[in-house]
C-alpha cells in the first residue's frame, strides 16, 4: 500500500541549496508511486513565485520545474496562507501550476491549494513520512 509522503519546503529558492535538492528528491520519488504532497511554508513560499530571474546571481533558475510536477502526477501543492501574507504576497504572485485530470477528459485543474496554519498542522499530522527541507 502506498504511503503518504509530504515534502515540506521552508527555505527561499536561492541562497541555500535546500529547495533545489528537495525538488530532486520529489522527482526521483515520483517513480515510487506513493501518495505525494508538497507543502510550502515560511520562506519556502518564495519557491513558487512567478518571474524568477537568476541571471544576475549566476545560478540555475529551476523554477519552471514546479510547473512540470503535474506530469509526474504530483498535484497537491499546499501553500500556507499566513506565510504568504507575512511576506506581502498573494496567490497572484505565484506561478500558475496545473495538472490534467484524466478522469475528467484531461481537464486542467490548479495544483496549488491555499491552507491556513492550523490546517497545515493537521495535514502534516496525517502523513506517514515527512521530509523537511
Amino acid at each position: 500500500m502506498a504511503k503518504k509522503f509530504l515534502y515540506i519546503n521552508r527555505k527561499a529558492p536561492y541562497g541555500t541549496i535546500y529547495a533545489l535538492e528537495s525538488l530532486e528528491v520529489v522527482l526521483i520519488g515520483a517513480a515510487f508511486e506513493q501518495d505525494v504532497s508538497l507543502a510550502f511554508i515560511d520562506d519556502g513560499v518564495y519557491q513558487l513565485t512567478a518571474g524568477q530571474d537568476t541571471a544576475g546571481a549566476g545560478m540555475k533558475n529551476f523554477s519552471r520545474t514546479y510547473k512540470a510536477l503535474g506530469d509526474f502526477e504530483i498535484n497537491k501543492l499546499y501553500v500556507e496562507r499566513e506565510s504568504l501574507e507575512e511576506r506581502g504576497l498573494t496567490l497572484d504572485d505565484l506561478q500558475q501550476i496545473t495538472w490534467e485530470d484524466e478522469n475528467e477528459d484531461y481537464a486542467e485543474k490548479p495544483s496549488i491549494h491555499l491552507v491556513g496554519r492550523a490546517e497545515m498542522a493537521s495535514l502534516i499530522a496525517s502523513q506517514d513520512v515527512v521530509l523537511s527541507f
Binding site: K3, F5, V25, I28, G29, A31, V130, L131
Partner: peptide, 20 residues
C-alpha cells in the same frame, strides 16, 4: 547510491527521522 534509497527508507521504515 541514488535518492531512491531515501524513498525506499521512507517506505520500509516504521519511522523516518530527519536530522538537519
Amino acid at each position: 547510491s541514488g535518492l531512491g534509497q531515501l524513498i525506499e527508507a521512507g517506505i520500509n521504515a516504521e519511522r523516518l527521522v530527519t536530522f538537519g
